[in-house]
Amino acid sequence: MKQRGIAIGIFWAVLLVTLAVRAPAFFDFANLRDMEVVNAPALIVAVGMTLIILAGEIDVSVGSQFAVASVVAGTLAKAGVPLPLVALLTALVGAGFGAVNGALVTLFGVPSIVATLAAMAFWRELLRWVTQGAWVEGLPANFQWMGLSQPQGELAILVAAAAIFGVFAWGLRHWQAGRAIYAVGSNRESARLAGLPVTGISMAVFVLMGTLTALAGVLDSVRFSQVQSSAGAGLELKAISAVVIGGAAITGGRGTLWGTLLGASVLAVIAPALTFLGINAFWEKAIQGGIILGAIVLERLSARGGGRSR
């Protein structure tokens, strides 16, 4: 798994050098800042997805959760609820979504991919039915940037994302609860025999995933003055790809948040990099797929190479 990280690291370095030579403007402060602000919500979702995958589960419903959370946040703000309360209530709604997924998986024994596949369709279709595709418009003036100025608002989003990332990156390594997620993911039965509350831990990662997704939805919405009801389409695949490219094992127990950060960065940079390099947008999906497959192949080849030299 480490090899996958190395392979992606090499790809990442090559991409950055190419950009530095061909389009140095890519590294302008304004561009880096904008890319970070735009992708901060997706990174928060990827943090949650890392926990989920480390615990040996998966959640494909995050895109739908994200959309519902955005609309809930917008609707609450429109109803005059003060923003801190909006964020809190939306996070609670997200925690509720996570708890539903968690309950289906832990209490009813539904495999997580099936439970969240159902949740994905359920929430998305319910949202479509209720909103009929209409956006939340006419939000109060203090919704955008949470009533701050634009530079302050952007800073707030970045700080929030960095704080969430930092806390989880630290906690996964150094807190008992963090180690417990690895333990459950690598072998559930051993973890149970070692006295860990495996059901509680699985439940907790789903609740965390829902909460983080809802927070990401809020942070994403406040960049604008209207809320679109179709937000987050394809977000689940993006988040899973980021985690996987970052070297985590899809079977659980192995992976780091730093890897996820690398994976999320690679995915975030592809689209703008293509524009900077003047490459046609039509090949974007093919390149994304190629990166994932390339990582698998390189991982295997480098593992073989390593084996021979030993």
């Binding site: 790809s241 899809i250 994304q288 797929g289």
Partner: peptide, 29 residues
């Protein structure tokens, strides 16, 4: 990719999910 390179089916086919569609879009611009 799954049998020779040991990729997990979910990851491999997530990759080809993008790759196949991407090639189709690229070919037809």
């Amino acid at each position: 990719l799954i049998t020779r390179f040991g990729g997990a089916p979910l990851i491999v086919t997530l990759g080809t999910y993008s790759l196949f569609r991407g090639i189709a879009e690229g070919l037809t611009r």
